[in-house]
Design a protein around this nucleic acid. Structure first.
Length: 305
DNA sequence: CGTTGAACCTGTTTGC
DNA sequence: TGCAAACAGGTTCAAC
């Protein structure tokens, strides 16, 4: 679920909520998504949150050295996977079925991590292992220049969609923003990286940046279950032009938006605005008559982790 | 190098 | 109505 704009939104929320707070105790549920659960229990109590950073789709919760003066500075690395949520809540609330990490803070609240599918990841890392962990990631799509962007895709025979999703090429882009930027740049997801003209690559780089920045302002996209650190959904889904719009009219030319599997993922695009490889297979339209049920999307969920 | 499919796990939506 | 298949914002790995 969470891509760069969603993770950035969560990170900003956490920054306001937990900076300066000290961890009192740790309570774990299922731990198969945690690198070393015992390390969390051993090293987190007594530490203070000193900074919250985002690196691609990862969040880095920077921790002070241990209270006793021993122990090196370290970080709690958090990846939200597809369904991860992290938010501080008043202590004592009943723990949800999928809440697997709860950090009691010194102000009486609990920082809780909830993740139904447990595709996320959590790890306690000191400086050196952290640096190793983060080495090898690609450019920050918010900062990358068109020159570097081009150098990272030119000469690659992989499909542009696969390259956008590849975290060693760019860090932070996922399925939604890959499709949205390709639609805006009028580039078919199955085109090969090496096939893009200099102009196309430049356009893609520019619109990707614009879309991500706008999405951050709108606090991310909530399709079904993304909630930020305040328990609020984002609003950028209202601006989607391709993602999830199968069968609906293209905003530019009214042609029906189609779906195909590219790089192993559902990919949405306008077959007219984004001409692709000859005979590229579209998937048959699905979800024909979609009745508009009570979109419980409209509801404003309150933080309940 | 690249692609595809499966796996990880649970919940929700769609199709017959 | 019911049940099974398909699908979901991600990542990784084996096989070709």
């Amino acid at each position: 679920m969470p891509e760069l704009p969603e993770v950035e939104t969560v990170a900003r929320g956490l920054r306001r909520a937990i900076l300066g707070r000290r961890i009192v105790s740790v309570s774990l549920g299922k731990t198969d998504f945690i690198d070393d659960p015992v390390a969390l229990e051993q090293h987190l109590p007594g530490r203070q949150f000193e900074a919250v950073e985002r690196y691609g789709k990862f969040m880095l919760l920077r921790l002070s050295a241990a209270a006793n003066g021993h122990g090196e500075p370290a970080s709690l690395l958090v990846h939200l996977g597809m369904t991860g949520q992290i938010a501080p809540i008043p202590a004592g609330q009943p723990r949800g079925k999928h809440t697997h990490v709860s950090l009691l803070l010194d102000d009486g609240r609990e920082l809780r991590y909830t993740d139904a599918r447990r595709f996320g990841r959590m790890a306690y890392l000191t400086e050196t292992p952290l640096a190793e962990e983060l080495a090898g990631f690609g450019a920050d799509p918010l900062e990358v220049g068109s020159e570097e962007f081009r150098s990272r895709i030119q000469g690659r025979r992989a499909r542009i969609k696969a390259l956008l999703l590849d975290q060693t090429v760019l860090r932070g882009v996922g399925n939604i923003y890959a499709d949205e930027s390709l639609w805006r740049a009028r580039i078919h997801p199955a085109r090969l990286g090496a096939q893009l003209s200099k102009r196309e690559a430049g356009t893609l780089c520019r619109v990707l940046k614009e879309i991500l920045k706008k999405a951050i302002v709108m606090r991310g996209s909530s399709i079904s279950d993304f909630l930020d650190a305040e328990g609020e959904p984002g609003e950028y889904q209202r601006h989607h032009r391709a993602y999830g719009r199968e069968g609906k009219a293209c905003y530019r030319c009214q042609t029906s938006v189609r779906r195909a599997i590219v790089a192993g993922r559902s990919s949405y695009f306008c077959p007219k605005c984004q001409p692709g490889p000859r005979g590229f297979a579209l998937l048959p339209l699905r979800g024909k008559t979609r009745k508009r049920k009570n979109r419980r999307n409209a509801r404003r969920p309150s933080a309940r982790l």
